[in-house]
């Protein structure tokens, strides 16, 4: 495998890791606040559809992004209502949200566009186009560093950079601000936070809201950045891979970055079976590459490689004592 092939694969890795990263960080906020969210997949899907649909109708990808976030936030609100206000089962609520999104997106897509559950192809200002960082063509000829800069770092859509910047931002918010401390505390011991006079319900709703915004970004990137339009079930399990990455990362932002890059790398490799074969000298079934993130997560969960300990109060509705 030559250097340029490696750069190409890493470039694909970055693209494929971006939606995972958004969704993974989304889950991070929610789960750190004690709200399990297996509805990441559904929120991403809804955001993907509404962003593509509004981008197609208005011609502006930014309006599309807003619509996508709006749809994702709406589902977040449903999740919050079910699991915070009405103290329902968070897992069941997440499952329900996945189905709501899977059903509604196709129904509405068919009603609006009559193209068999997809949106029209997006082009121009209706998409997040690749942006070239300064000097990328001037530096392209520099050996090694040139391709790394011009192929790998430059030439992604703006959401990719936003995703990578969200990682330090999330770290700062969670571990260096008062809000972050409270958010983490509410996922470990909500009663203590309540005793300190902080509104548990409000805090959890904020966390679920942030989760909605980030899932919105993930979905919008899928439909208007990575691809040019929405197709049925286009999130194809990415929400669950993100969930797997979150566990793999033990609910920490920087680890989440590496977990998402790793899982993105597997996805990128499954597009290049020829390279995998050339490097390993034997063939690996593509399906094994597809399943690898899930297998790794099970191994991590099993505690054979480090132990993943979830936030202590995760999954339990908070009942104020009366």
């Amino acid at each position: 495998m030559d250097f340029l092939t490696l750069i190409q694969i890493l470039d694909t890795t970055v693209r494929l890791a971006t939606p995972l990263l958004f969704a993974c960080l989304a889950g991070l906020y929610s789960e750190r606040a004690g709200i399990f969210d297996i509805g990441l997949e559904g929120k991403m899907l809804a955001a993907a559809f509404f962003s593509a649909a509004f981008a197609a109708i208005t011609g502006s990808v930014w309006l599309g992004l807003l619509a996508g976030m709006g749809a994702s936030l709406f589902l977040s609100a449903v999740h919050g209502l079910a699991s915070i206000t009405f103290r329902g089962n968070q897992l069941i609520s997440g499952v329900a949200i996945n189905f709501l999104a899977a059903g509604l997106t196709v129904l509405i897509a068919q009603d609006w566009f009559q193209q068999g559950g997809r949106t029209p192809s997006l082009a121009g200002a209706a998409r997040f186009n690749e942006i070239d960082l300064p000097f990328q063509s001037a530096l392209a000829d520099v050996p090694y560093l040139g391709p790394i800069y011009s192929e790998l770092i430059s030439g992604h859509s703006i959401l990719v950079y936003v995703a990578f910047l969200t990682v330090p931002l999330t770290w700062y918010i969670l571990f260096r601000t008062r809000f972050g401390l409270r958010l983490r505390a509410v996922g470990e011991n909500p009663a203590a936070v309540d005793t300190a006079g902080v509104n548990v319900i409000w805090l959890r709703f904020v966390a679920v809201g942030i989760c909605g915004v980030l899932c919105g970004l993930a979905g919008a990137y899928l439909a208007t950045g990575l691809q040019a339009g929405f197709v049925k079930d286009m999130s194809s399990g990415r929400g669950f891979i993100a969930l797997a990455a979150l566990i793999f990362a033990k609910w920490r932002p920087w680890y989440a970055l590496f977990a998402c890059l790793l899982f993105g790398f597997f996805q990128a490799l499954s597009f290049r079976p020829d390279v995998v074969k050339a490097v390993l000298q034997f063939e690996i079934p593509g399906q094994l590459m597809d399943a690898l993130p899930y297998i790794l997560t099970v191994v991590i969960l099993a505690g054979f490689v480090g132990k993943a300990i979830p936030p202590r109060a995760g999954g339990e509705p908070y009942v104020k004592e009366r």
Binding site: A82, V95, A96, F99, L100, A101, A102
Partner: peptide, 10 residues
């Protein structure tokens, strides 16, 4: 999805 939501979570 609606049935799961209303009979389960809500």
């Amino acid at each position: 999805g609606l049935v799961i939501l209303f009979t389960g979570a809500l």
